[in-house]
Nucleic acid binder design. Sequence first.
DNA 1: CTGTTTTGCTACACGCCTGTAGCAACACCT
DNA 2: AGGTGTTGCTACAGGCGTGTAGCAAAACAG
Lengths: 198, 198
Amino acid sequence: MPAAQRREQLLDAALDIALERGFHAVTVDAVARACGVTRPVVYGVFTDRTALLTALADRAEARTQEQLAPVFPDLRDLTDDTDPDELLVAGVTAYLSAVAADPRTWRVVLLPPEGAPAELAARADEHRRVLLRRLRALLDWGLTRRGGPPLDPDLFARAVFTLAEGAARLLLADPDRWQVEAFTGFARTALAALRPQG
Amino acid sequence: MPAAQRREQLLDAALDIALERGFHAVTVDAVARACGVTRPVVYGVFTDRTALLTALADRAEARTQEQLAPVFPDLRDLTDDTDPDELLVAGVTAYLSAVAADPRTWRVVLLPPEGAPAELAARADEHRRVLLRRLRALLDWGLTRRGGPPLDPDLFARAVFTLAEGAARLLLADPDRWQVEAFTGFARTALAALRPQG
DNA sequence: CTGTTTTGCTACACGCCTGTAGCAACACCT
DNA sequence: AGGTGTTGCTACAGGCGTGTAGCAAAACAG
């Protein structure tokens, strides 16, 4: 089997094991067995067990970043006839749809399995900081355009972010029970209520 | 040293290690060394490493439960001149104050260190379910009394809960930067904005 | 002061996982 | 067909952590 393909296969297997039995269970042997090979094959592709885990994190990071592209509009594209509320609702919809479409990747980030390496959490936090900044910029634009209650903008952005992640976690934890529309509907209603002169 | 005292000492040491270096580092040897003794002493108190970790979870659960007592008022105590908004703000204040007062315990629950056993997360989730039910009851009472936007009550309760936990996490992650009052102020303003004819 | 109990230690055996070395088998190119 | 490189395997050595057995020493009761 060609190296590149084997690499993907090994990462897929590692992800499966991590999701099903936790990162503790992601031993080199377990990954090799899951692919029907033996340990030296894994060491042929990754120098380390650590390298394997890092590659897994890299791939997850790349995928999530890619999927987040349509969530944030470019602020320069916004015109006067854009409704800030609908812009935000569209972003939430895009985010939750991405999560629902690729749950295995997002689960690693949002509901980390047992024994997840600290590196993973650290990277996710770093990434969150960037996202929060972008969300903050978007909300600033919206708040100056349509006004709103005298809420601390930083806390407001964090609140929206936290709620979006919470919704995503519910989607991941119990996809049969929750639909994206339930959350976007809630968001739309809540934003409408927060309009000046409610 | 008497057994009961040794037990507490061992659990304290285990908690220290877990918070500083993650649960991976909570080996029987590390805990023993931290108390200036050797491994057989630990096995004299706990049958297992697992038993030690379970005891740690038990203690954390007991402490959090105890500290949450003043957060939820008994619904039967409420009279007509109780302001629902202030009741909720008082609950949030009590919750965040409890977290700020005992960060080491809450950190285990809200910002679990690397390698935390799945048992811990499972128990925390179970506990959350109970808390969510109580919060839901409180909010139902408030919403029927003062009205509000047509939000799904279940999602609204989850949102409040998620935001409260998010605030608690910020308090734990960066206590120098955040104060309880910032969050309660935000909550008060947001609730006021969500009043009918806000 | 002496026997007994408590308390703790050193030392061992085991299991699990990591990482590597050396060998077999297969495929591919000439 | 025969060399050559690839692909994978079996087998080993070592590290780290668990749990236990057996011994020393200190505390304590009679």
